[in-house]
Design a protein around this nucleic acid. Structure first.
Length: 502
RNA sequence: CGGGGUGUAGCGCAGUCUGGUAGCGCGCCAGCUUUGGGAGCUGGAUGUCGAAGGUUCGAAUCCUUUCGCCCCGACCA
């Protein structure tokens, strides 16, 4: 009964929200809050005409472009080159690696008709869910000797996975990502690559997205289909759940053997290459939202904000405009020269208050209000996206000060996120405490002992919906110590990170 | 694939039981007044009522068929 009332209640709130263009409070209904932030931030909308797909709108895509630009630079700095492989992959390729096909078969879309006729079974294509197979095929053509190694390739692309439940940015049928694919002459070197790229992701998440992550290793049941090992970065969302924000895989020689990717070693022996693959996707945008945003909408870290500062001129009468506009234009030019992405919102017909709300919903870090009074006093009203109060600042100082203010804001967001994670991370040693943490749909990050078996992992998931997010890499969690498995009581030598997950 | 719901203007919905001129709120457009935290008034535009067939003088409304979407299961990460 309570549940029924609850759902009716939130439905009526929801209607109100749709009518007024406002945002459901996070504490009231987290999933609705998320949807509202995406909509009101003008980031994306559900395509509807194409099941499970989304349209990324200009503001959302601009954020993705900033993510792309920074990551692309990091990939190139670590020696990788971009390339592009076909969207369609022969069905037969998918079947060549046993675990791979088992993992992906259920979510593959197949092209069965083309050129006005049905394709024979052995000529059908699937739309790539990932590109290990087709890239394996080409690697086998491109690699002859150890002199061709390492082969370091990255692809920016779209992929398709037929998902049953979709959520904007977090899980959609089609999504955008990058997939790095490398081939090496030794397992040692491949493993170094896996860790190197995981750290690229981790550094990017923390430095640019202000999203702290825990770097670790996936349990066997959570690893990539066809990999020896999957490393990951896991971030805490504001509902205490974990988001897998990036993965880096040690593929061993599995795909090398399946696609006959061989090279002649220095000693003249024919050997299979050791491969890696690694990727992050538009899911990062979802992580960005659920790390920083609040009940007023999106909050963007300056380093990813398409607009870092917005100036709202307040001028109504022609005389006021004459006074205000030149000052606004000069300030905008000075800020631009100082490297700030600035936008002047001089739209007619909208009142300042409405503009304030709009830019807050869109996550702009800094707002500058400039009207006749400010021109006279030489001071403008400024407001940071997370501040409670407006602050008066000297107009002439803004161009010099704003870059530093934005930098501090970036650090503030990271600090807030770190604090939040700390407050919601616990060490647990008993099964009843464990269940308490996750009771009533709640979630936190829990460090606890696990006996390392698939059976225990499955039981825990079955009873609590909690999964092993990762086994922490050195320095990413509590130091290794002997203990007893939270569920089975069997011996364990390290705590693992457990949480509910997206 | 099972159980439940739903489809009417860009969005959110009423109207369907009991057949009779297609409605409301928000948004949009125009004009005037407004403008330092979501403006007010006046006027205006917008619909194959999901689709097909049937009953009827007449169908958003009744009947049949069909398609899409949502929620809960199942499946998946």
């Amino acid at each position: 009964m309570l549940l029924l009332l609850d759902s009716l209640c939130s439905e009526s709130v929801r209607r109100k929200v749709m009518e007024t263009g406002k945002i459901t409070p996070q504490a009231e209904d987290f999933p609705s809050w998320y949807q509202d932030v995406v909509r009101e931030g003008d980031l994306a909308e559900v395509a509807k005409i194409v099941k499970g797909c989304m349209v990324i709108k200009p503001h959302g895509y601009a954020i993705w472009e900033k993510i792309q630009a920074d990551l692309d630079r990091r990939f190139k700095e670590t020696g990788h080159k971009n390339a592009y492989f076909p969207l369609l992959i022969p069905m037969s390729f998918i079947h060549k690696e046993a675990e791979h096909v088992e993992g992906f078969a259920p979510e593959i879309a197949v092209v069965t008709h083309a050129g006005g006729k049905e394709l024979p079974k052995d000529e059908q294509y699937c739309i790539r869910p990932t590109s290990e197979t087709i890239i394996g095929h080409f690697f086998s053509k491109w690699i002859d000797s150890y002199r061709d190694l390492p082969m370091l390739i990255n692809q920016w692309a779209n992929v398709m996975r037929w998902e049953m439940h979709t959520r904007m940015f977090l899980r959609t049928t089609e999504f955008l990502w990058q997939e790095g694919h490398t081939a090496h002459s030794s397992h040692e070197e491949a493993k170094e690559e896996v860790t190197r790229m995981l750290n690229v992701y981790g550094d990017f998440a923390e430095e640019v997205m202000a999203m702290p992550v825990i770097r670790g290793i996936k349990s066997d049941s959570e690893k990539f289909a066809g990999a020896l090992q999957t490393q990951c970065i896991e971030a805490m969302m504001r509902d205490g759940k974990a988001l897998q924000a990036g993965t880096s895989h040690d593929l061993g020689q599995n795909f090398g053997k399946a696609f006959d990717v061989k090279f002649q070693s220095e000693k003249g022996r024919e050997e299979y290459v050791w491969q890696t693959s690694w990727g992050v996707s538009t899911r990062l945008v979802g992580g960005l939202i659920m790390t920083h945003s609040d009940d007023s909408g999106l909050i963007l870290p300056p380093r990813l904000a398409p607009v870092q500062a917005v100036i709202v001129p307040i001028a109504r009468k022609p005389k006021e405009k004459e006074l205000v506009i030149p000052v606004v234009d000069k300030l905008a030019a000075d800020l631009k020269a100082a490297g700030v992405a600035v936008k002047v919102d001089d739209r007619e017909g909208k009142r300042p208050g409405e503009k304030y709300y709009e830019w807050e919903r869109k996550g702009v870090p800094l707002r500058i209000e400039l009207g006749p009074r400010d021109v006279t006093s030489g001071e403008a009203m400024t407001k940071l996206r997370v501040a409670d109060d407006k602050v008066k600042m000297k107009i002439d100082d803004l161009a010099a000060d704003v870059p530093g203010i934005l930098d501090t804001f970036q650090q503030t967001l990271l600090r807030r996120a770190l604090d939040f994670r700390k407050e919601n991370t616990v060490t647990v040693d008993s099964w009843s405490d464990f269940k308490d943490v996750f009771a009533d749909g709640a979630s936190k990050f829990v460090w606890c002992h696990w006996d390392g078996t698939k059976e225990t992992e499955a039981k825990i998931k079955e009873e609590t919906k909690v999964t092993i997010r990762c086994i922490p890499l050195p320095g990413q969690g509590p130091a290794p110590e002997d203990g007893k498995c939270i569920y089975s009581g069997n011996p364990s030598n390290q705590r693992v990170l457990m949480s509910k997950a997206y």
